[in-house]
């Protein structure tokens, strides 16, 4: 039988730096073994455990879209021993990976709908996956609105792509930072406030929210107030995880495990789960 503990071997193909302090880096990985590549099927919202022998494993949302072939993308915030070690990797180095794990954004339910994507900080990873996925079959979806907030302009990830998205007339991009700074011409203020200001009509619209707990906590009630029903709001939660398959216990909230029952939950599901955000 298979052994879920054994990571697949991945090769670092490209490393990008997302912020001036080089705390956020983006890694494009390719499969060392063809059989692993062929077996790997995923959808936006899923995550993987990246694994460094001697340091351990940590979960990361997949930032690439299944429509982008040839690589898997992860953005890693340097904050603990595993992420520190990942930041030491160079092009051509190998890293272990387990996945794809968890469920995904309701991409089929988004077809024919307006989509509102709300993101915060470096949690934009799986939202990038979703956005690329939607753009690659643009005609299947109606209006796409993105509200993306960061503490300051440096902390947006995927800045080059954001610039491209902003130029397109088939995405409404709204960027916001917490406090005004010189030279910033976009919005200023917290994400929930901007959502209240620019969110599209809830009619035929699905909202997908991913960000830090405090952003999620204050954004969900705003969406409800705007008239989004519980079945039309989805969010992705995060907890400390280890096994990724609902056994080790630490990501347990209510009767759910974030790693297998989530990380994506509808607002309707969240209402029955205690201490989510």
């Amino acid at each position: 039988m298979g052994n879920y503990c054994i990571p697949q071997q991945m090769k670092v193909e490209r490393i990008g730096t997302e912020d001036p302090t080089r705390t956020l880096r983006t890694y494009d990985l390719s499969f060392v073994n063809d059989s692993d590549r062929e077996a790997f099927k995923y959808l936006p919202g899923q995550f993987c455990e990246l694994s460094i022998p001697g340091k351990g494993e940590s979960p990361f949302g997949i930032a690439s879209s299944p429509t982008e072939e040839g690589f898997l993308r992860f953005t890693v915030n340097r904050t603990g021993s595993v992420t520190n070690e990942i930041h030491y990797l160079r092009n051509g180095d190998t890293i272990g990976m387990r996945g794809p794990l968890g469920n995904w954004y309701p991409v089929d339910d988004l077809k024919g709908m307006n989509v509102l994507i709300v993101g915060g900080g470096f949690a934009f990873t799986t939202l990038r996956s979703l956005l690329i996925y939607l753009m690659d079959a643009r005609e299947d979806y109606r209006d796409i609105t993105v509200i993306y907030g960061a503490r300051n302009p440096d902390l947006f990830i995927y800045k080059d792509e954001i610039a491209l998205w902003k130029q397109r007339d088939d995405i409404r991009m709204h960027l916001t930072i917490d406090k005004p700074v010189d030279g910033w011409n976009e919005k200023t203020g917290f994400v929930p406030t901007v959502v209240e200001e620019v969110a599209p009509d809830p009619e035929n619209t699905m909202a997908i929210v991913c960000g830090p707990p405090v952003m999620i906590k204050y954004t969900l009630p705003v969406l409800t107030k705007l008239g989004f029903s519980d079945e039309r709001i989805y969010t992705s939660l995060e907890r400390r995880m280890k096994c990724g398959i609902g056994k080790c216990g630490r990501c347990n909230i209510g009767s759910k495990y974030i790693c297998i029952d989530g990380p994506v939950f509808s607002m309707a599901e969240l209402k029955n789960i205690p201490e989510t955000v």
Binding site: K242, C248, G249
Partner: peptide, 9 residues
């Protein structure tokens, strides 16, 4: 049955 996964080496 909760467990942790650790590396020793």
């Amino acid at each position: 049955h909760c467990y942790d996964i650790q590396d020793e080496g």
